[in-house]
């Protein structure tokens, strides 16, 4: 690991000022991904700006019925928070399906959104990787890519975004609040992560020196039920091969509102707008759910070894929507 400076910020302003004009600076949250990448030599910051003691560790009820989650709220605290469990079950479930207890205690909400792909080539500095070193190529396309993207990839990058939390936030229409040298701005979480295109080195639309200060949830749809389901190679502590976050409101057997997002399939949480089109005002039947999932996944372009993800994602979506459409169990 390369030596680096360390600054413990006492205010958001101070943190952002310290990062200004220093491309080698990184904000340090829980460090569960950043410190790991520093050990691997993938990240080589000259300065760490520790933002973990900023007063951004609260979950606030908003007047409109939404929630504002401070960027430094730990993954454990987020998943355990009563309003999240009661009104945004999909978010609690998604967070709890990721990582381990130790990591969730340490990892932050902001850091979770900014975690990097676990593509093996990205994490191995002895290999080419367009995300790590633009222009060096993408060995994953022909190499080991079983875990990688089937949707929205480019010739330059087939990486997947690894966060479970972000998939739930995409289905919930959450907003990311940022503070940077030019002040505050907000970005819908569905537009926060990018597709790789010609610039896979940019995971998100965050600008240099911008700090995530909070994630905001709109008021929950009280008539809806929500669920996160993840398929992985072992029962716990593994990244998603495919996952589904769904919010579904069914009245009199008809879908009133549906929000669906896939994880593990793309460079960003994949909000399934085409599927939602099929679902809207349609009978809440397994047939509808299958047509909806297939409408979305028609755009899939699997690589040599990851074609299994397409039927896996379809079946996950059908199972989750079917479960949500069933009347809640009594008791």
């Amino acid at each position: 690991m390369k030596p680096f400076g360390y600054l413990r910020a006492t205010s958001v302003e101070e943190a952002v000022r310290a990062a200004e004009g220093r491309p080698g600076a990184r904000f340090l949250g829980g460090g569960t991904n950043l410190v790991d990448l520093m050990k691997l030599g993938v990240e080589r910051p000259g300065l760490l700006i520790d933002v973990t003691r900023l007063p951004l560790d609260h979950i606030e009820e908003l007047p409109d019925g939404g929630l504002r989650i401070g960027a430094m709220v730990s993954n454990s605290a987020l998943a355990a928070a009563a309003p999240v469990r009661e009104r945004y079950a999909v978010l609690s479930q998604a967070v709890l399906s990721g990582a381990s207890g130790q990591l969730r205690n340490t990892a932050t909400t902001g850091g979770n959104l900014l975690q990097r792909t676990r593509c093996l080539y990205f994490q191995d500095v002895s290999k080419p990787c367009n995300k790590r070193e633009p222009g060096t190529g993408c060995p994953a396309r022909e190499g080991i890519h079983r875990d990688l993207a089937v949707l929205g990839h480019s010739p330059h990058c087939v990486a997947t975004q690894p966060s479970d939390m972000a998939v739930a936030l995409a289905a919930l229409d959450a907003t990311v609040h940022l503070h940077g040298p030019d002040g505050d701005r907000s970005v819908p979480v569905t537009e926060f992560h990018r597709l790789p295109g010609d610039h896979p080195e940019q995971d998100t639309v965050i600008r240099p020196g911008e700090l995530i200060t909070a994630v905001q949830l709109p008021p929950a749809d009280r008539g809806a039920r929500s669920r996160y389901r993840k398929a992985r190679d072992r029962a716990s502590f593994a990244f998603a091969l495919a996952s589904v976050a769904a919010v579904l409101d069914v009245r009199d057997g008809v879908v009133r509102r549906a929000a669906l997002a896939f994880g593990g399939l793309a460079h960003r949480p994949w909000r399934a707008r085409a599927a939602e089109e099929v679902l809207r005002d349609a009978p809440a039947t397994e047939d509808t759910f299958a047509r909806a999932a297939e409408a979305e996944l028609a755009a899939a372009e699997p690589l040599r070894d990851n074609g299994f993800k397409v039927p896996l994602a379809r079946n996950l979506a059908v199972a989750v929507l079917t479960e949500l459409a069933a009347p809640p169990a009594r008791g």
Binding site: L28, D50, Q102, T106
Partner: peptide
């Protein structure tokens, strides 16, 4: 792997990923 697990302010954490200065 979890072999480095300790308790920090009462909560378990992977000490290998924590910078001491922080």
């Amino acid at each position: 792997c979890g072999a480095c697990t300790v308790l920090v302010d009462g909560r378990r954490a992977n000490s290998c990923l924590m910078l001491a200065v922080a």
